[in-house]
Write a protein that binds this DNA or RNA. Structure first.
Length: 418
DNA sequence: TCTGGGGTCCTAGGACCC
DNA sequence: TCTGGGGTCCTAGGACCC
C-alpha cells in the first residue's frame, strides 16, 4: 500500500553559508559565520550583488535570499558579507550525497542542498525511521561539519514540508494523520508551488492558510488557476505520490547558460562575442551529455529590466558550438531593439540522443569537419584546462571567452516538480 | 537603491492540415 | 458562398523551484 512508504527529505541548513562557515573554521578562522549576522553574496561592482544565503542571526534582521546586498546592509549595518565559492559547495553537496547513499541506494538529489531518500521496507519498527534520520543527521554533522534538517513522511511533498519546520539540526515527521495539526495552520505561501504571484490571488479569495486552501472548492481553483490549481489543492491535502528517482541525465530537457554583464552592452559585436562565450560551455555540456538539440533560444534583459526572448526550431539536430553560435547570433539580431543590455542567455532544448544514424539532409555545412573540430576542442580542454583554447576573436576584447558552466559536469539537476 | 543563474512546466495565440 | 471544428506544431511569456 501507498501509506507504507517511508521518505526522508534532507535539507542542508543555510547551505552556502554553512558550507562556507565550516570550511573557514577548518582553515583556522576563529569566527563561525553561522553565529553572527552574515550572508554569502555576489559582487555589486559586477552587478551580481544579491544575497545567496543568510545565517540564522541575519534572518532575524528580516534579510531575505535574493534581495540586493544594498537592501540587506540597510537592514543590518554590521552585516558580514562573504563571496561565494561554487566549487566548494559542489564538493560539500557531493559529500552529503555520499553519506546518504550508505543508508539507501535510492537517493534523489533535488538541488545542490536537498535530497530525497527512500527508506521504505528497511524497518519493521515504527520508531526506527526517526532514530535512523537522527543517525544520518549526526553523521553529516560529525563528518562534514554542517547541520541538516530531515523531514519524514509517506511521500516526498510532506517530507519536504516537514524538513522546513524548526531549524537547524532537527528531525521532524509529518505523517498524513498529523496534517491538520502541523501543516494546515501554516500560511499558504509556505506550500510548495505557491509563489509570490499566486499568494496575493489566493489571499484575495480569502485563502490565507494551507488549511483554507485544502478545504476550498476545487472547481473554482481549477477554473482560476488551471492545472496548477489542482496541483496546489492536492498538495494542501497532502496528496503526492511521485517516486524517489535516482539522478541521471536521461530526463534532461535542456541546457542553458546566461550571465549578467558588468556593463551595459550597446553594440552588436560585443553581444555576439558574449553569446559565443555562453554557447561555448553549452556546447561542451551538450556533447558531454551525448545529446543533440533542435531548439535554440536566446534571451536578453535590458538595463530597464524588461526581458524578451526568441527561439527557433531547427530542421536538424546538432551539438556543434559553431552551428548553435551562429543561430544564436541570428536570433539575437532579430530580437534586439537597440536598448542597452544587462543580461544575455542562451539555451538549447528538444534534446535527442546523439546516435548519428539518422543525420538530416538539411544539416548545413561540412558535418564531419565540424564534428572533428568540436571533438578536438573538447579533448584539448579536457587535457589542458578549459581556458587552454579560446576563440581568437576574444583576444584583446576584454571579455571572458568562456562563460558559466562552473566547475564540474556533475552539477545537480534541479526541478520545480517533485 | 539594487535587483543571479540554472532549471521545468504551463498557457495562449496563430499557422496549418484534415 | 459561407460556415464549423479538432489536432498538432511553433512561439513568446510567465509561473514555480532552489
Amino acid at each position: 500500500m501507498e501509506s507504507e512508504r517511508i521518505i526522508f527529505h534532507i535539507d542542508a541548513n543555510s547551505a552556502f553559508l554553512s558550507w562556507e562557515a565550516a570550511y573557514r573554521l577548518n582553515q583556522g578562522e576563529k569566527i563561525d559565520l553561522r553565529t553572527i549576522p552574515s550572508v554569502v553574496g555576489g559582487d555589486p561592482k559586477t552587478r551580481h550583488g544579491i544575497v545567496l544565503a543568510k545565517s540564522i542571526p541575519a534572518k532575524a534582521y528580516k534579510i531575505k535570499t535574493g534581495e540586493s546586498l544594498f537592501a540587506a546592509a540597510q537592514k543590518c549595518p554590521n552585516l558580514t558579507i562573504v563571496p561565494p565559492s561554487y566549487d566548494l559547495y559542489l564538493k560539500c553537496s557531493n559529500a552529503m550525497v555520499d553519506i546518504l547513499k550508505r543508508y539507501s541506494p535510492s537517493v534523489q538529489r533535488f538541488s545542490i542542498d536537498e535530497c530525497f531518500l527512500d527508506y521504505t521496507g528497511k524497518t519493521l519498527c515504527k520508531k526506527s525511521p526517526f532514530n535512523k534520520a537522527c543517525e544520518i543527521k549526526d553523521a553529516i554533522k560529525k563528518e562534514l561539519g554542517f547541520t541538516v534538517n530531515i523531514g519524514i513522511s509517506n511521500n516526498k511533498l510532506l517530507a519536504k514540508v516537514a524538513s522546513d519546520f524548526k531549524k537547524p539540526d532537527m528531525v521532524h515527521t509529518l505523517f498524513p494523520e498529523e496534517l491538520k495539526k502541523k501543516m494546515w495552520p501554516l500560511p499558504v505561501e509556505d506550500l510548495f508551488m505557491v509563489g509570490r504571484a499566486t499568494k496575493p490571488k489566493l489571499n484575495r479569495m480569502g485563502i490565507f492558510t494551507i488549511g483554507d486552501l485544502a478545504n476550498f472548492d476545487l472547481d473554482i481553483l481549477k477554473f482560476k488557476f488551471k492545472k496548477p490549481g489542482l496541483l496546489i489543492w492536492e498538495y494542501a491535502n497532502g496528496m503526492e505520490n511521485s517516486k524517489v528517482s535516482p539522478d541521471s541525465s536521461v530526463g534532461m530537457k535542456g541546457i542553458g547558460n546566461s550571465t549578467t554583464i558588468s556593463f551595459d552592452v550597446e553594440d552588436r559585436k560585443t553581444a555576439h562575442l558574449i553569446l559565443f562565450s555562453l554557447v561555448e560551455t553549452v556546447g561542451m555540456r551538450l556533447r558531454a551529455s551525448n545529446n543533440l538539440c533542435s531548439l535554440v533560444s536566446v534571451s536578453i534583459k535590458s538595463n530597464k529590466f524588461s526581458s524578451s526572448s526568441k527561439q527557433r526550431k531547427l530542421y536538424f539536430s546538432t551539438d556543434s558550438t559553431n552551428a548553435i553560435g551562429e543561430i544564436s547570433c541570428q536570433l539575437f539580431d532579430e530580437l534586439w531593439n537597440g536598448d542597452p543590455i544587462r543580461h544575455i542567455g542562451v539555451s538549447v532544448s528538444s534534446l535527442s540522443s546523439n546516435q548519428r544514424n539518422q543525420l538530416s539532409f538539411f544539416y548545413p555545412g561540412d558535418i564531419e569537419k565540424d564534428e572533428r573540430l568540436n571533438r578536438a576542442v573538447d579533448d584539448i580542454r579536457e587535457k589542458y584546462g578549459k581556458n587552454s583554447l579560446v576563440r581568437s576573436s576574444f583576444l584583446h576584447s576584454g571579455l571572458k571567452p568562456l562563460n558559466g558552466g562552473s566547475g564540474s559536469d556533475s552539477y545537480p539537476v534541479m526541478s520545480s516538480f517533485l
